[in-house]
């Protein structure tokens, strides 16, 4: 068994509104909002690191759960934008938490990374006890703030999210998950290291939307069929916050009520692997009491990797 016990998140303080981006990328603020659903996003400072953002989210999550870092059995950290490939941010976060022997694992996967982390944690919880799943990104260093980079520059922001998966207790039990990868389409969405060791995101946005509009509803329906659910049964859908129009397309394809899809894109932008857990933390904080209906998590991104996870309220 594996349970979701707590979430945490961290957003850098600097707000970057569409008006600030508009002059750099040559697009009207109103167009950015209508194309993406994003009004502002956060940017890390020059001194910030991916691990530093992840550490803040980790501490927020542990504080909410009332769990000490020493009680963790494992840490998983997803990031597509970490400054260093190996070792990635997970070991640095563990060190900053005062841990010197707790196993950690980096998941170098962008948008779908934290969903993969939750699925892996669900499997490892029986052995590790408590697994802290993190998604931490400084995507603002991967974009090109010029008219040539408009399609990605308008989307991305920085932040970190966390989820504590516990083998014994939590407000929702992870009941099922399904992950998929299709490397044949890897070229349409990738983060590569360019000159000066700077990560740069490349995205064929039209192809990404084509793929995501099919794959996300399909994998969620896989879980519904396996678990005897329909789209009206979950009380909450928590999706990777990629683009508001995409999330609404998924709702329409599933024939699920739009209001059950939690969306924070307007304030946070697309924070890649961090977005699922930042949204989950904000959603959970907005709840009065414990959830009484199933929760669906889903993400899609570079790889291509995509998947969905079903959590049901604990008795």
């Amino acid at each position: 068994m594996a349970y979701i016990r707590a979430f945490g998140s961290y957003l850098p303080s600097r707000r970057v509104r569409n008006e600030e981006l508009a002059t750099l990328v040559g697009a009207a603020p109103e167009w950015i909002l209508s194309a993406t659903g994003i009004e502002e996003r956060r940017y890390a400072s020059a001194e910030d690191t991916v691990a530093g953002l992840g550490l803040q989210a980790a501490q927020a999550c542990l504080n909410k759960a009332g769990v000490a870092a020493e009680e963790l059995g494992m840490i998983l950290c997803a990031s597509g934008s970490s400054e260093r490939f190996c070792p990635g941010p997970a070991s640095q976060i563990a060190a900053e938490l005062g841990l010197s022997a707790t196993p950690v694992l980096d998941i170098p996967v962008a948008s779908c990374g934290s969903l993969i982390g939750l699925a892996v944690a669900a499997q490892l919880a029986a052995h590790a006890g408590r697994v802290l799943v993190l998604g931490a990104e400084i995507m603002s260093r991967c974009i090109d703030l010029s008219p040539e980079g408009k399609d990605t520059a308008i989307l991305f922001g920085d932040g970190a999210g966390a989820c504590l998966v516990d083998a014994n207790t939590g407000f929702a039990r992870i009941a099922d998950f399904q992950l998929h990868t299709d490397g044949t389409a890897a070229e349409i969405l990738k983060i590569e290291q360019g000159r000066n060791h700077q990560n740069r995101i490349h995205m064929d946005g039209r192809s990404v939307i084509l793929q995501a509009c099919r794959k996300i509803p399909r994998v969620i329906n896989e879980l519904f069929e396996r678990n005897g659910l329909t789209a009206g049964d979950p009380g909450t859908y928590l999706l990777h916050q990629a683009n508001q129009n995409l999330i609404m397309r998924v709702a329409a394809a599933l024939q699920a009520p739009e209001e059950r899809f939690f969306i924070n894109l307007r304030r946070c932008g697309n924070t890649s692997s961090a977005s699922l857990l930042i949204a989950a933390d904000e959603w959970h904080r907005s709840q009065n009491g414990t959830p009484s209906a199933p929760i669906v998590f889903s993400a899609f991104g570079a790889g291509l990797n995509w998947g969905a996870l079903l959590a049901v309220p604990s008795p």
């Binding site: 389409a185 192809s207 084509l210």
Partner: peptide, 8 residues
């Protein structure tokens, strides 16, 4: 099929 879902 998904393998043909390329904008080009």
């Amino acid at each position: 099929p998904d393998s043909d879902l390329s904008a080009r």
